[in-house]
Computed example of a mutant assay.
Amino acid sequence: MLKKITAVTLALALTACANTDALDESITSLTTKVDALSVQVADLDAQQKSIAADAQAAKELAEQAANDAKAANERIDNVVASYKK
């Protein structure tokens, strides 16, 4: 009986060691993947901020162009009005 218990204990000990190595390998693999994803998220965040800045600049330029066009149309209207008088 004692031999069977010893054999089972030895088998469990060896199995536990093998599982620990596999677990460590899995943890290492997952850590590597998380690190890679963290880098990708940081890159995407930087790209998003750059795109948002570009979009804001384009919006400001469009607003300025609309204001300039409105001012030019008013000047043209004033010139045309002065010829009719």
Rank of each mutant, 00 (worst) to 15 (best):
L2T: 12
L2E: 15
K4W: 12
K4L: 12
K4G: 06
I5D: 01
I5C: 06
T6F: 13
T6M: 13
T6Y: 13
T6C: 14
A7V: 02
A7N: 01
V8I: 15
V8N: 14
V8F: 15
V8K: 15
T9P: 06
L10F: 09
L10T: 08
A11Y: 07
L12W: 07
A13I: 09
A13F: 14
T15I: 15
T15G: 05
A16Y: 03
A16V: 03
A18I: 00
N19C: 12
N19Q: 13
N19R: 13
N19F: 13
T20Q: 12
A22I: 15
S26T: 10
I27L: 10
T28I: 13
S29A: 15
L30G: 03
T31M: 13
T32A: 12
D35E: 12
A36Y: 00
A36E: 03
A36L: 05
S38C: 10
Q40Y: 08
V41A: 04
A42K: 06
A42W: 08
D43T: 11
D43M: 12
D45W: 13
D45P: 04
A46V: 13
Q47W: 09
Q48K: 10
Q48P: 00
S50F: 09
S50I: 07
S50E: 03
A53F: 07
A55V: 02
A55F: 00
Q56W: 07
A57N: 02
A58V: 06
L61K: 09
A62D: 05
A62Q: 01
A62M: 03
E63G: 02
A65K: 02
A66N: 03
A66E: 06
D68G: 07
A71L: 05
A72M: 00
A72L: 04
A72G: 04
N73T: 12
E74Q: 06
E74G: 00
R75V: 05
R75D: 00
I76P: 00
I76R: 02
D77G: 10
D77S: 05
D77T: 03
N78R: 12
S82I: 06
S82R: 02
Y83L: 11
Y83F: 13
K84M: 14
K85P: 02
K85G: 07
K85L: 10
K85M: 12
K85H: 11
